[in-house]
Computed example of a mutant assay.
Amino acid sequence: MLKPSCLLLAGLMACSTAHAQVFQRELGDFDLKLGTTPSRSMAQGLVKPSAAGSFHGGLDLSHDSGLYVGQYAPSMGITPGKNLEIDSYAGFKQPFDQNLGYEIGMIHYSYPKVETLDSQELFGGLSLLGSRFGAAFSNDPDKQNSTLFADLGGNQPFGIGISMKYTTHQLNSPVSVDGGYVSSFNDWSVKLSRPFMGIDLDLIYSDSNLSGSDCSAYSGRNSQCDGLVTLKAERAFY
């Protein structure tokens, strides 16, 4: 995998690219991509998305055989409150035909500038008629996570994309709460997406099976323990 300095350079190159978010070039049997948006549906955010900072980007190198490697930084750690995160990944992606394919791989999450242990994630998925269905298992420093994901991109009523995610978290050490302990919990989210006048609009509902004082044990993928509705609008300027 590439060193952080190389990734930073690639990210800055991607951020300075005008009129496009992905720069692509063929190198023999290889395909190289530099960009400010993830190039992989599974390997960069489909299973474990991260909040992007103001500066983010990475590179992706794939072979005609289906093998690929890459790095992506959801945050360069430049803006206040954001830490440098580097996601290194490798995998294999192959279509059976135009309507069916599969993908397997692994991601390594690292945070070079903070004292946070690295984590790993194994993932696999199927693409069927334009929709994607995936599963992943990750080993974080404090828990293990098992995730199921569905992106119904092949069927978008009124142009609205629908994706759903369900995760089970098993804590390494039970957390003391009022009236007992929490050793595991589940959380889930549903996202509706639609482009509008060059703006990507997302409506997200997230929740978990914890409530009240039990939420002190929550450390899942959602932004908070209780039910939450989020409206997100994002526009790319390059």
Score class of each variant (00 low, 15 high):
Lys3Arg: 15
Ser5Val: 11
Ser5Asn: 14
Met13Leu: 13
Cys15His: 14
Leu27Arg: 04
Gly28Phe: 02
Phe30Leu: 11
Lys33Cys: 05
Gly57Pro: 05
Gly58Val: 04
Tyr72Val: 12
Ser75Ala: 09
Pro80Ser: 06
Leu84Met: 15
Glu85Arg: 07
Glu85Asn: 07
Asp87Arg: 12
Tyr89Glu: 03
Ala90Ser: 13
Gln94Phe: 15
Phe96Gln: 09
Leu100Cys: 07
Gly105Phe: 11
Ile107Ser: 10
Ser110Gln: 14
Ser110Gly: 08
Leu117Met: 12
Leu117Trp: 00
Phe123Tyr: 15
Leu126Cys: 11
Ser127Tyr: 11
Leu128Asn: 10
Gly130Cys: 13
Gly130Met: 14
Arg132Ala: 12
Ala135Phe: 06
Ser138Leu: 12
Ser138Val: 01
Asp140Met: 10
Lys143Ile: 11
Ser146Asn: 04
Ser146Gly: 08
Thr147Arg: 15
Phe149Glu: 12
Gly154Ser: 11
Asn155Asp: 12
Thr168His: 14
Ser176Thr: 12
Ser183Val: 03
Ser184Ala: 14
Asp187Pro: 03
Arg194Asn: 13
Phe196Lys: 05
Leu201Cys: 13
Asp207Asn: 12
Asp214Gly: 02
Cys215Leu: 02
Arg221Gln: 11
Arg221Val: 00
Gln224Trp: 00
Asp226Tyr: 00
Ala233Lys: 03
Ala236Pro: 01
